[in-house]
Amino acid sequence: MPAFGTDKRHHTLTVLVENKAGVLARVAGLFSRRGYNIYSLAVAPSDDVRFSRITIVVDVESAPLEQVVKQLDKLVPVVSITELDPASARERELLLATIEAGESERGQVIQLVNVFEGKIVDVGTDRLTVMVAGAPTKLDDFEDLVRGYGIVELQRTGRVALPKLVRSAARTPASLSDRPRAFGGSDHDHDPDSTETEKAG
């Protein structure tokens, strides 16, 4: 499996939609009808009760991103679309996993969870349920590392994302507001979390 979210075929769209019945079906129906592949999808209320935010990671090899965005934009309940190139986005995801952790391995698993700044959320006789939040690649790494102990159950939320903040003084607020619609952002800011992932790996 290609590292989820790291390769260029995946782009993240954060789609602000009206908070009305059937909107998710419209979005999902559009993707299936037009043959666009979804890698991950997360829906949650936004800070405004009238709207929800759908974060979709789309496979841009299945269709040109421009078409995906324009077709989505035609849906009447879609209010706005922000296209985030992985290089210019802060992406986070949450992972819950129940892991085999008998007496002899328990200490190692807890150590690993600590390295990934995760938490133990439940403790059984010979199992632990743990939570890790972070960049999707970091969760991939964690998954790889705990697999050896035995994963009983694992769930990931699908990612959410926000654009990276711009630190250059040349940027004006006006140009920032133009940004969500622009395709292929090329800022490469420092992502503290990615670096951590590398360390952990």
């Binding site: 019945a21 059937g22 079906a25 419209r26 129906g29 559009l30 009808r33 849906l75 009447v76 309940p77």
Partner: peptide, 14 residues
């Protein structure tokens, strides 16, 4: 019918 016609209407309402 709103589900059936989602892909063949510009929009629909229940």
């Amino acid at each position: 019918i709103t589900g059936i016609t989602m892909g063949i209407t510009k929009h629909n309402w229940l």
